[in-house]
C-alpha cells in the first residue's frame, strides 16, 4: 500500500478556520471550584499533617489548632518534628499497624521505666533551639527580655494507643520542661 503524502496527512488534521473552543462553561466550573476552595481555605490555619497507618480519634471540640512542635505516635515509632526518635517493639502482628503494641524496648527507658531517654534528648535539643531563636528574635517583653519559651507540644496519636504509653511521653516532655500538651483529634463534622 502506497504511503500517503505529507500534505495529505496534514490536510486530514486541518482545523477549520472558524472553529473556536467554548470556554464559558469551563470558566463557570473553575469559578465554582475557586469559590469553594477560598471558602474552605479560611478554616485551615495549621500545617499539621498525619501519617499513613494512624487512626485519629474524633472529637466534638471545636478549638483551632495553632502551630506547635508536633510529636506523632505511629504504630512503629515515635516521631518528633518529622524525625524518628524511638521505635517500638515490633512483632509479626504489629507490622503494618493491624494490631500495634506500642511497647518500648527496655534500653530506651530510664527513671524506673517512666522516661524515654532518646525522646528526652530530642526534646531538650528542640527546647534549646527554640530558646536560642527567642533570644535572637527582636520580640521583647516590657523589661527588654526575650519572650519566655511557651513549652507547647502537640501530640498526634493513634486512637488505640494506651494511656501508659502516652503517660511516658508526657512525663518525658514534662522532664524536658514542656508545660502544655495539645492532644490532637479529627474534628467531628457539624450536623
Amino acid at each position: 500500500m502506497a504511503s500517503r503524502s505529507i500534505r495529505q496527512r496534514r490536510g486530514r488534521h486541518k482545523i477549520h478556520k472558524d472553529f473556536e473552543l467554548q470556554l464559558t462553561s469551563m470558566m463557570d466550573i473553575l469559578v465554582i471550584i475557586l469559590v469553594f476552595l477560598l471558602k474552605s481555605y479560611s478554616a485551615s490555619t495549621n500545617s499539621f499533617a498525619t501519617v499513613r497507618g494512624i487512626q485519629l480519634p474524633i472529637s466534638k471540640t471545636t478549638e483551632m489548632t495553632p502551630d506547635s512542635l508536633l510529636l506523632i505516635v505511629t504504630p512503629e515509632a515515635i516521631t518528633f518534628e518529622n524525625q524518628r526518635i524511638v521505635e517500638f517493639v515490633q512483632t509479626a502482628d504489629s507490622v503494618g499497624g493491624t494490631s500495634p503494641r506500642y511497647e518500648f524496648k527496655a534500653e530506651d527507658l530510664d527513671e524506673n521505666g517512666m522516661r524515654i531517654a532518646k525522646l528526652y534528648d530530642a526534646l531538650n535539643r528542640a527546647r534549646d533551639k527554640a530558646e536560642l531563636l527567642r533570644q535572637k528574635s527582636p520580640a521583647r517583653d516590657a523589661n527588654g527580655q526575650p519572650l519566655p519559651w511557651d513549652g507547647i507540644m502537640a501530640i498526634q496519636a493513634d486512637k488505640r494507643v494506651r494511656y501508659d504509653t502516652l503517660r511516658k511521653i508526657m512525663y518525658t516532655a514534662g522532664a524536658a520542661q514542656f508545660k502544655i500538651f495539645r492532644l490532637l483529634a479529627m474534628r467531628q463534622p457539624q450536623s
Binding site: L38, A43, S44, E63
Partner: peptide, 17 residues
C-alpha cells in the same frame, strides 16, 4: 490553593502539666 490548603480538620484538647 489545592496545594497549600489542609484538607484534614484538626481540633485539640489542651492540658497543662
Amino acid at each position: 490553593l489545592m496545594f497549600t490548603m489542609a484538607f484534614l480538620s484538626f481540633t485539640m484538647i489542651e492540658s497543662p502539666i
